[in-house]
Design a protein around this nucleic acid. Structure first.
Lengths: 192, 192
DNA sequence: GCACCGTTGTACAGAATGCCCACCGGAGGA
DNA sequence: TCCTCCGGTGGGCATTCTGTACAACGGTGC
């Protein structure tokens, strides 16, 4: 019922690109390499890149830009989403614009058997954007944000103020030379 | 030309929700609090949450779910994007599904004045998904992925194999109890 | 040689988008 | 106090895209 590039199912048609006339012919484009279930295809890579750079374009636009049939694009998208390569198209919210310009990474050391409780505790803190359990000296690593350096103190207190967390060290993020990206990896995977 | 929730401009209309009849009336909904340019509105919060949970729905669907006019949703989206709160609607690609299931965080210590060169070096490595300069013992923190633990060695070698990086320590991410999220923060900012 | 899968073209109905207009109502300024 | 500005609401229109079904072709693999 709604628009927005989504998923459909099997083969589908398209109004096509150039006035080919009718029937088949034309070049097979990138060609359906040999990939089956493993990595991604060259076409997949181009599709992802295209959608990443101009999210507002629809399936039809993609088919035009990629010089393939609309049905192909839809099918690729379906498969990509089904395989989990593409999770979704949710809005990318900027914490800074939300009023939380300070980012920090805290390494936590947890006391024996308190892991689960600590996880729940951290999951309940809105300022905790991400939590990983890691190898090494610390046991967990959390990514947190705050309204200011002063506010960061409050957040940290709330984060580490919990039985089970025996020690912690925080590193404030100053600059972000390379913001989160995935396209280079996609290209590499596509080239494979 | 294309569909997909995007941006338009000024006031616009909508086919509305319930058969109100015509004209105005009806309740003002959440009500345009007092926010001007700072944080976000309650409506904004609900909109973001809605889009985050079901990205494939369009502007019209949103207006129906939120019980507001289509024009309002479009206007809000426009402003949200203009203010940078919402960056875009790019596809969320999963590194694991791409064939890179191993994630690690490396802390790098850089020798005096080599910062810029190191940044460029790191930016050129596809497996480097993120880079932050931080306070504390280390100078930089990178998030990297690899095809396997064995492959991680290769990636690390490539990452730290550069003049200017004097020391480094790596922590492999084992579990991810709290995957990257932003919604809780959005709610908090909206409640404000 | 045969079957299967993916890509291609086409068509059609339903639905959403982009955009214009007019009106209402509250906030802020003169 | 009055006036203006801004944001929300309704309605409508032309354009365009989506969702889906169908038939045919070509390459791959059994």
């Amino acid at each position: 019922m709604p628009p927005a590039h989504a998923a459909s199912s099997p083969g589908a048609p398209g109004s096509s690109n150039s006035p080919t006339g009718h029937g088949h012919s034309v070049a097979p484009g990138g060609g359906p390499a040999g990939s089956t279930n493993d990595a991604i295809d060259v076409l997949d890579g181009r599709l992802i890149r295209l959608l990443a750079e101009e999210p507002r374009i629809g399936v039809l636009e993609c088919s035009r830009r990629l010089q393939v049939a609309r049905g192909t694009v839809q099918a690729r998208l379906d498969r990509l989403q089904a395989r989990g390569v593409i999770g979704g198209f949710g809005p990318e919210v900027d914490a800074a614009a939300l009023g939380y310009p300070v980012t920090a990474f805290a390494t936590l050391e947890i006391s024996q058997g308190q892991g689960m409780d600590v996880r729940e505790h951290l999951a309940a803190v809105p300022e905790v954007l991400e939590l990983h359990t890691i190898t090494g000296r610390g046991d967990m690593m959390v990514r947190i944000v705050a309204r200011s350096n002063a506010d960061l103190q409050r957040v940290i207190d709330r984060v580490v103020g919990f039985d089970g967390i025996v020690r912690s060290s925080t590193a404030i993020a100053l600059e972000n030379p390379v913001p989160y990206r995935i396209l280079p990896l996609v290209d590499q995977a596509a080239a494979e």
